[in-house]
Design a protein around this nucleic acid. Sequence first.
DNA 1: CGCCTATCGTTTGTCAGACAACCTATCTTC
DNA 2: GAAGATAGGTTGTCTGACAAACGATAGGCG
Lengths: 171, 171
Amino acid sequence: MSVTDPCELPADRRRGSNFGWSLGMVLRRWHERVEELLKDLPHGSRGYHILAVVVHEEVPTQGALAARLAIDRSVLTYVIDDLANAGLIERRPDPQDRRARRVVATERGRQTLAEAERRVAHAEDHVLGGLPEEQREVFRDLAARAAEAIHAAAPATDPCVAVQSVLPPAD
Amino acid sequence: MSVTDPCELPADRRRGSNFGWSLGMVLRRWHERVEELLKDLPHGSRGYHILAVVVHEEVPTQGALAARLAIDRSVLTYVIDDLANAGLIERRPDPQDRRARRVVATERGRQTLAEAERRVAHAEDHVLGGLPEEQREVFRDLAARAAEAIHAAAPATDPCVAVQSVLPPAD
DNA sequence: CGCCTATCGTTTGTCAGACAACCTATCTTC
DNA sequence: GAAGATAGGTTGTCTGACAAACGATAGGCG
């Protein structure tokens, strides 16, 4: 096993952009940790995100919630079911529109979220352990702002990308 | 779990740490874009990452490659198959160990990667369009370093996490 | 009012990717 | 050379994402 040490590559640039890989790596680890921590929160990190939005933001309907989190409506259905069964949120009929359901947090839900957030914050520090303290905050902040911007510009459509082969023409 | 958290969280994070969501958001968009751009590179971003490592780093064997990218060996098998079929890399028997295969890039593979990297870099700027120019580089850099650290500390095991319910005791 | 279309939430089915288990060929050790 | 370890490959299972269809209700319009 004589591996040329990968650390001897000084030029970051030479290795090309491994941004996608890096993000995937960090996210995967985040997921592992959080999923472990929130084992008995219904649907783990999924449930966590949803609960967080329900508690912290005033999101009128399930549809709006799906839009806010950029997840599929059909997913919301059963996650909310289970969060409701766990007594963390409630699904109430909207008096103005009987098609819609308003999702509100229970007190238990609020408590649970608070505890979950403590744990997740801790886990995140662990995940970002490779970065010095102050840079973690920077990273988190940049991620949040990048994500927010992406989410705002939701339609992923960008007609200006001319789809053309990466491959050089066959000789 | 005594909780006067030593690291008093800034009010910013009271809104809940949506770090995981943010990362997911950015990564998802990255994926969409890149997958589109590299449509005819076998296995898209997957093939891209593998090709990048094969070209830029001296990775001895398939197993080492899998370890480097932290992906499953069984995935490598067919991705490499297809990259090889596309004439981008070659799988050569290792003269020292006939079990092992050395994976080397072809000239065509190198050209293809160069083109792919151009496109991906462009796409990434687009994905990070919500951040001002100089912060994008910071973000990329932090991501890379965080990921590298995570990858170095590969075993996700952390015995210090006491698995305990997030939910408050049922009344 | 009766009809038409859009929207909300839900259900169902399909598909791809992740991962474990197993297999064969080869190397290493004793 | 027999036993166990390791490289690569194959197979099967399971999960999660997503599309499509559905019932219920709202709003517009004749």
